[in-house]
Design a protein around this nucleic acid. Structure first.
Lengths: 335, 335
DNA sequence: CTTAGCAGTCTAAGCGCTAGAGTGCCAGCA
DNA sequence: TGCTGGCACTCTAGCGCTTAGACTGCTAAG
């Protein structure tokens, strides 16, 4: 357990380092923060903090830099202070976003842009996926003589569509009949039950046309459970001094390339719990994220949960970022 | 006009430079390419090529590097050779993609990934946008007592949806009636005509509920004309030596952040013409792309045209990239 | 327990030097 | 006239050296 003074010195050092990105010396701390002690005393404390693993020296004649453990201590201090409630920023921005809320995808996109702007980091919002969604309605819309579009709507308002190409011409009446058959057979069932139902005994589902439609619907349903991410703020991240050589950004970029990979990397163990997960440097499960911190939170009620994550240098303004993620949560929860 | 030998020397230099990313000297060219002349002769020719602006020296004692004009000359040579037809690569990969073609968005995603992999560059595919699309069908799907989902399908198979929140409860029968009214009023009209039709005299469209639905449909239709881009291969680009300092990649990243900006930057004057546009370095209209080359082509028939673009260092394998873009075009044209 | 002062250490930056790569030019040759 | 070998010249990358500056750790005094 750290003494109060050491804690204050650690905080001062981190604040300084977050602002400057340069190793911080004892004199700087003494000058910029009114701790009432001389640099020499601070040096002694810094030495102890280094011993304990909270800070480190790049080389003998340089100042100190926080370690992952140092940031962790700092962040835990912030969180226990419960000063967070006060730090949720910019209610006006939130209002503006809620007013413009049309479709969910659009709201996600806007919120994400705002989140990236506020935090000056990379931000990612994953659309909610719910394997438990049920089929509310199916529409078959004719596109040509022998092709149609199958549109599937779930009870939580998601939409998926897929082309259907019939082997022979399909008159409008037959298509409508087929649509009725599909709705009778599938409405109310879980989206992932389509494949099973295709094997059911209902003779109406055994026609060639019905099978074709079922196949397309299964494809459409599959796209609903696929992770879909919106990204914003990559260029902001590139401007930070720690990422000036792109080598340091490469692992992050690799993770970002694929929605599914990204989902796994960010979502590990964050699922289900309501609060905000903070993973600093090596606390991340994915090796590619060892060099950055991830502030993640879930949103959405019930089974359909989405995820918000801000990715930035370990040297980030944690307080501001946590507040911003909370604000994004409340926007997307429709509060 | 360049003499045949100078042309061959320029090609040799570019090939060498594309492979090595290092300034190329006269000896290297003499050794690796059988031109039948000594380094001294090549030096004279190089001097002339530099005079003409096709190549340049980073400093006196270094080899030569192609300029944008040099690449242009080289590329024009390639294109006039018509050897392109032969260079469309990997028909097997194309087959595999076509077989897995479900929804267009999915096909775009896969094609894009393959394009990035083949070219080892950043690749972007913009989904087709057609302001001329006509409304084929509208569905209103009830989600709760007083909310529904409006789904709009166009005659070219695009789907847009939007939440509708009614001010008072909306029974299923009324919703169906409303759906019928909407289809009668709107089917066959252009998507951008919804706003005008809302002001029409038809009394059935003047009810509060109808107005609410119309507003949502207009929003949904608007999303159809918005540029939507799929990106792939950013990390591949970061691995290239010219982009090792992220400063050089920053402008490209900025353009990539916003779909609309990206569309404008890539699409300038590429619209309408069938062929493949090659813009090398400063030939690009957007300043942020001065450091890269863009190989762009359109796909899709009729008014709904999408765009394919590969973005890479000016030092790229133009022949391979052009072939790959052509292949992507043929996949997305459904050939 | 704190502090001032001091010696010690390490880096960043500037300078000079050298090896190497590549050029341009010239004179000779086909 | 055009090509070639040879040579002097130029410029960079890299190495070692030196110095200024930053910061520390230690010690002795308050």
């Amino acid at each position: 357990m750290l003494s109060s003074r050491r804690q204050r010195i650690l905080c001062a050092l981190i604040e300084e380092y977050v602002a400057s990105a340069c190793p911080v010396g004892s004199r700087t701390i003494a000058e910029h923060h009114k701790l009432g002690v001389s640099p020499a005393t601070i040096r002694n404390e810094l030495s102890a903090l280094e011993e304990a693993g909270y800070i480190t020296q790049p080389h003998t004649s340089a100042g100190r830099v926080p370690t992952d453990a140092g940031y962790r201590e700092f962040v835990d201090g912030i969180l226990s202070d419960e000063q967070m409630a006060a730090s949720i920023p910019h209610p006006s921005a939130i209002e503006a976003l809620k007013k413009s809320a049309d479709a969910l995808d659009d709201l996600i996109e806007r919120t994400n842009a705002e989140l990236a702007r506020l935090t000056e980091c990379l931000s990612v919002i994953m659309a909610p996926v719910s394997s438990e969604a049920r089929i509310r309605q199916i529409s078959l819309v004719s596109l040509s003589d022998s092709s149609a579009l199958a549109v599937l709507v779930t009870d939580d308002g998601q939409v998926a569509n897929e082309n259907v190409i019939f082997t022979e011409p399909m008159p409008a009446d037959d298509l409508q009949a087929l649509e009725r058959i599909m709705n009778n057979a599938l409405a109310g069932h879980a989206t992932d039950a389509i494949a099973e139902l295709a094997n059911a005994t209902d003779p109406a589902l055994k026609t060639a046309a019905a099978r074709t439609v079922m196949r397309s619907l299964a494809c459409a349903a599959a796209t609903l459970t696929r992770a879909r991410a919106s990204r914003s703020g990559m260029s902001t991240l590139m401007r930070k001094p720690e990422f000036h050589e792109s080598q340091s950004l490469l692992p992050v970029m690799e993770i970002l390339e694929d929605d599914t990979v990204l989902f796994k990397a960010i979502g590990r163990d964050g699922q289900g719990s309501e609060g905000i997960k903070i993973r600093i440097g090596h606390e991340n499960a994915a090796e590619q994220l060892f060099g950055v911190s991830v502030i993640a939170g879930v949103y959405g009620r019930g089974p359909a949960q989405g995820m918000i994550a801000v990715i930035g240098p370990t040297r980030m303004d944690y307080s501001k970022t946590i507040g911003a993620v909370q604000a994004a949560q409340s926007i997307l929860n429709g509060e």
